[in-house]
Design a protein around this nucleic acid. Structure first.
Lengths: 160, 160
DNA sequence: CACAATTAAGTTGTGCACAACTAAATGGAC
DNA sequence: GTCCATTTAGTTGTGCACAACTTAATTGTG
């Protein structure tokens, strides 16, 4: 079980504060920059992610959208509804499977892609990172996500 | 201004999807692991961050807490109120400056630190990263955050 | 065919992040 | 001392994330 707490434990607590805080802060900082840049397009950051998938993959059922973005219907349903309200997508109940709802880009939604092409340049400039660094960081973050997802399943409760 | 869109732009759009998605996903994966581990302590991840600061720094006014965590009163006020509801902290209006509210650990809140000492070990194990990798990642994320914060101020609107 | 299990989407409730705002206290400038 | 700008918390409203639940359609099995 737990060894008696020591100064080393306190150091780990501090390190934990640093790493979890760093990731949390970086995520919010990213969000903030996207917020500024995307305001012109009338999109939030998560809405932009959905649009990126649709621009790349074409129209998809909500389920597939969720698989690409690791988001469930609880998040996507209202988000897609807001995109529909903005006139960027339409939701169409599938005819061959009435459970499924296909999210389809409107002309306006498809056209928005042209204006979005500028976004990555703005972001890349904002990070101050070169292509190598971005790629490395992405690789490391993905590895982290994979490990964390696996750990979340086993609940992190096993003994040492 | 914008050069006519090309296949290269589309590639950037895909890369953008990758990097912003990676960070977003990593952040949520981290959050998920913390959620599981912190459930025993009755804390959410942001509440844990607040407690970490209080354990390390002692009691602080809300303002200082916000500076450490880059959070404003709109986020902290209700969060601290929930911590107070859980009996972990007390909020005390400062006597020398009636505007300021000092957040003070209760005995119960201070005692919770003992149980929290185990959290970093669980997290470290969940990431599968060694100390060097964690430190490197943290350093890179902090650099990213600094750059992004600076960019958010200049609004990312300047020309190339 | 009938019926139980599964699946897709949506709904509800809680908590966080942040913008925009309000209220109260403080500190200067005069 | 009076008045105004600043500072500290808090409130309100919007949107996202996620757990737990509901509804409706589909699939599988007897």
């Amino acid at each position: 079980m737990t060894a008696s707490p020591t100064a080393a434990d306190a150091d780990w607590l501090r390190l934990d504060r640093q790493i979890c805080f760093s990731l949390h802060a970086a995520s919010r900082a990213f969000n903030g920059v996207y917020r500024v840049i995307l305001k012109d397009l009338g999109l939030t950051y998560p809405q932009y992610l959905v649009m990126l998938v649709l621009w790349e993959q074409g129209d998809l059922p909500v389920k597939k959208l969720g698989e690409h973005l690791r988001l469930d219907s609880g998040t996507l349903s209202p988000l897609v509804k807001r995109l529909e309200g903005a006139g960027l997508v339409r939701r169409e109940r599938s005819t061959e499977d009435e459970r499924s709802v296909r999210v389809r880009l409107t002309e306006e939604g498809a056209a928005l892609r042209e204006r979005a092409l500028e976004v990555p340049r703005c972001i890349a400039r904002a990070t101050g990172f070169d292509l190598t660094e971005i790629t490395e960081l992405r690789e490391r973050l993905d590895r982290l996500t994979t490990a964390l997802d696996a750990a979340a399943l086993t609940a992190g409760h096993e003994e040492d």
